[in-house]
Design a binder for these strands. Structure first.
Lengths: 334, 334
DNA sequence: TTGTATGCGTTATCAC
DNA sequence: GTGATAACGCATACAA
């Protein structure tokens, strides 16, 4: 039993397709009884308007795309959760695209999306700092775009960020106050805006305590766990830092593994703090000090902004929102 | 500058729309030079066929829906990762729907999806064990469906599962061998197939060791962290179990929090093991023994099965796949 | 309040 | 090898 269409439904009811169509739209140019009769029959026959057809007709898809580097990640999965919740409320559907931090995929996805498939895009960019002028060309086609967390600074679009600079400054200050003299900064991509902001907070905190910033203490890591562990193992043994400020969660976790392996006592020998959305940070050994971003809310906010653009129009207005992260000190930095 | 359509492109080239259309399809009934000319112009003008229109025409969407209880969860986020990867390879797009374990939402989603929006569905059902006969009605409309992990036993569809019974049996056996006499089984929904299978493994392991199963040791929890902690606090103090077998990750984590609060020493006073996809289980305090499901592969397998149905046709053939979980003993059960 | 006719952008069928 | 045309299912302008 295949799907029924509006024409067949109309025939059953001895009505025209236009009348049937009206029953499903918000208008009130239809007799209440007829409408009910139509809806009843529709329920019985399990009819639902074909969205491809109606979307084609109305030139909108009621669908948004979410483009993120990864999903098996506490921050992004929560953010998507927030986006989905908001989208659901607004009657939108959510397509997911994972770049796996591959810039080429990002470009591919974005160009695929400009063909009516989606009404808008929410995106957190890849860590690869290549030329992203491709965005400028795409932007011209004017499908609304909202960045969150990882953004391209030179692309004009709405952005949802957290107060990375302040958080980094405070976190670094905290480590200094706890007696750290040699704090390494772990980063995946120095050139990405987010890495830059966080590093700036780190630098300024050092400076404010009269400590000179040293390029050697900036450790440029990758997204691969085992090579990170190898790198950090060397750093911890040769540079012998007494503090670690990790700009992303996975680098703190790599540090934990390395410390466990090398018998470095976290908290005593080496204090660790990091950006993280790990909800079980209190259960780690030792419990992990974190700067926790409001991931869910960031997603929700990004979606809210996008839908405002989509529905209130005014396509040239961009919103920038900054949400506050929370600094939670636990045993790893005490 | 808004999107261009096939007609405009055809005009620019002094060709008919049919010829232009041909350039974008796989056929070879078009002059090679014309084709190249068209493609070149398309690139220049940034033309892409509108997928709504072509999908309407072809009556398929090249899109699948993934319906899961939640996404901020290690298991599901990995599974989605696997699905997305496979979908990408096959040229499909992925819509995400989160039920938040709300049965009504599940019903709502599924009925929304039968209107041309998607070609197929991959789903893990909610924990609510209500009447799901609604599925039978929907199944008639014959859009391919693949279940993974959490399934409805009475619905005929392809299913991707793990060897839950064996894993549970082995894990419980392990606790018994380590000296546990009183093992509680933590479950969110006893009636869900997955809870049943896991519980059966637990029961049979007890029996095989000559221990009588007691209903009092089955603790029916919820999805709410704080009420679970309250419940478990009471159980740990009154029932005084020496072993915990948690059927889902969050219940083991709640146990950890409770033990930390009450000063119960995990591993010594109380041994814990659970189903979990937590990649940092080794970093917990103490490291957590887990039965780890191949979440990514399960997602990939579910997608593979779905696409086979979609492309090879043969709509009445169902595949059931069982993948093996891995039992990893760590300090929480030693 | 309802029906008729047209078009959304694309592709397949049939001519030429 | 290319062009004209109909059709996919629906929603609106207009007529009644």
């Amino acid at each position: 039993m295949d799907s029924i269409n509006i024409k067949q439904l109309a025939e059953k009811l001895n009505l025209s397709t236009s009348t049937v169509s009206r029953a499903f739209r918000g208008h009130n140019d239809i007799n209440k009884e007829t409408k009910e009769r139509i809806l009843a029959m529709a329920r019985e026959l399990n009819y639902q308007p074909n969205h491809l057809a109606s979307n084609l007709r109305e030139n909108k898809s009621k669908t948004i795309a979410v483009v993120v580097p990864e999903i098996a990640n506490n921050f992004f999965s929560r953010a998507i959760n927030g986006i989905e919740r908001m989208a659901r409320d607004k009657g939108y559907h959510v397509l997911i695209y994972l770049t796996n931090d591959d810039f080429d995929k990002e470009v591919e996805f974005l160009s695929e999306l400009h063909n009516g498939r989606v009404d808008g895009i929410i995106m957190s960019v890849t860590g690869e700092a290549k030329d992203h002028s491709y965005m400028h060309k795409i932007r011209k086609k004017s499908i609304p775009l909202v960045f969150f967390d990882r953004v391209y600074d030179d692309v004009v679009a709405s952005k949802v960020l957290t107060n990375d600079y302040e958080s980094s400054f405070t976190a670094t200050k905290h480590l200094l106050e706890k007696g750290c003299k040699k704090i390494v900064y772990l980063v995946v991509n120095k050139n990405l805006s987010i890495g830059k902001m966080r590093m700036q907070g780190y630098c300024d905190a050092l400076e404010s305590s009269g400590i000179k910033f040293s390029e050697d203490l900036v450790i440029d890591c990758s997204n691969d766990m085992s090579s990170n562990m190898e790198l950090l193992g060397q750093v911890f043994q040769t540079v012998k830092p007494d503090g670690v400020f990790a700009s992303v969660e996975r680098l703190a976790l790599a540090s934990y593994y390395v410390c466990h392996d090398l018998g470095i006592r976290i908290g005593q020998d080496l204090k660790i703090i990091c950006f993280s959305s790990l909800e079980i940070a209190p259960l780690l050994n030792p419990s992990l000090s974190t700067i926790t971003q409001p991931a869910f809310d960031m997603g929700g906010e990004a979606a809210r902004i996008l839908f405002r653009r989509l529905e209130d129009a005014n396509p040239d207005e961009h919103e920038n929102v900054v949400l506050a992260s929370e600094l939670i000190i636990r045993n790893s930095s005490l």
